[in-house]
């Protein structure tokens, strides 16, 4: 299990390759990348975070995923600082003996890190700058993991 919080860009393909390489214990690897999306007029995105709490929150979420599903490994990389449209913001990767666990754990990681890891996005566009508002559906997405 590894969590990395960094300003520097990373190469999604290289990370996926390294994560999957040499495994004999996991028949399934699932990966997800979050990309800076431009819905029109976005010049850049800035991600603020809470150093210290960010790492703790991500490590806790990753540990919970590892406990809930039969994961052999998981990886979370999340960037902060300025980014342009098309850049990779973050990724998760999960490795499990079978795909159902790998998919479910990856979705769980994404749902939790969207609204429980202390990151805040600010968009800078042609008509000024604005903080991205949290979506109700992101909060609602957590309910399916807490229903038991």
């Amino acid at each position: 299990m590894a969590v990395r919080v960094q300003a520097a860009p990373f190469d999604f393909g290289t990370e996926c390759g390294a994560f999957a390489a040499g495994r004999t214990d996991a028949g399934a690897v699932v990966t997800f990348a979050g990309i800076v999306r431009d819905d029109g007029g976005l010049a850049r995105l800035e991600l603020e975070h809470y150093p210290g709490m960010t790492e703790r929150a991500l490590e806790r979420i990753a540990a919970e995923a590892t406990q809930r599903w039969a994961l052999k490994d998981c990886l979370v990389i999340h960037r902060h600082g300025p980014m342009r449209p098309g850049e990779t913001i973050m990724m998760v990767a999960t490795a499990a003996p079978h795909r159902a666990d790998a998919f479910a754990a990856a979705e769980f990681l994404m749902d939790y890190l969207k609204s429980r890891a202390p990151f805040w996005k600010k968009e800078f566009g042609t008509d000024g700058a604005a903080w991205v508002a949290a979506k109700d559906e992101d909060e609602a997405a957590l309910d399916r993991w807490t229903g038991d």
Partner: peptide, 10 residues
């Protein structure tokens, strides 16, 4: 103590 708006990671 830290105060902040709802988080928007991912």
């Amino acid at each position: 103590v830290a105060f902040f708006p709802p988080m928007t990671g991912g």
